[in-house]
Design a protein around this nucleic acid. Sequence first.
DNA 1: TCGATGATTGAG
DNA 2: TCAATCATCGAA
Length: 222
Amino acid sequence: MTLSYPLICPDTLFYARPTHIVARELIGKKLVRMTRSTNGMSSKRISGIIVETEAYGFDDDAASHAYKGMTQRNFIMFGETGRAYIYFTYGNHFCLNISAKMDGIKAGAVLIRALKPLEGIDVMKKFRRTDDELSLTSGPGKITQAFDIKIDDNGKIMTDLEGELHIEECEKIQTLGHPINTVLETRRIGINKALDKKWRFVMAHIDSRGNYIISKYASRQK
DNA sequence: TCGATGATTGAG
DNA sequence: TCAATCATCGAA
């Protein structure tokens, strides 16, 4: 495939590439949620900068929901790229993914694991029932709670800038008080299969002594 | 129908 | 370190 213009995340082609590439490039983008306007309450905008993602593949990835084929739960991973794949787990939590895979590959998705809260922090605090900003969105289950993302958001188009749940470019990361020089690759968290793959990506910067400093908004460290 | 499991979280 | 908690999946 030849592209004559830069790939930006509002484009479904951004997600039509190898899943781990998309996962890496989603670091630094913005996840945006518009809350529903209810009687009297106007719609509010919630957003955060993506600081941690993980890639999940198909038959080369035993840790992936799609490993054994399509089911009622994972079918979004097999469909159009740039869609929300949301699932319920551990009896308590929803997790948000975005379908992403290269042409010809059967399935794939990127799990959004952590954000730096940006807009609508007061709303997030309400949904999360905590005032601790470092705990608002530092984990996949926390993100969906802070953004009020539920199973009825499954399949939503993440490339529509007018959509109530979508991804945007983020031009001003450097001025948002979050240094980023590099993206770290590590083993994925919370799985016990396919441990060889380094498909977790975390926003980081290198300090003056040359040490790698992982974003303080990432999920459980190490 | 039924038992095992889990891309997590929060408390101790 | 460990329990909570239930939808999903695959076997029966």
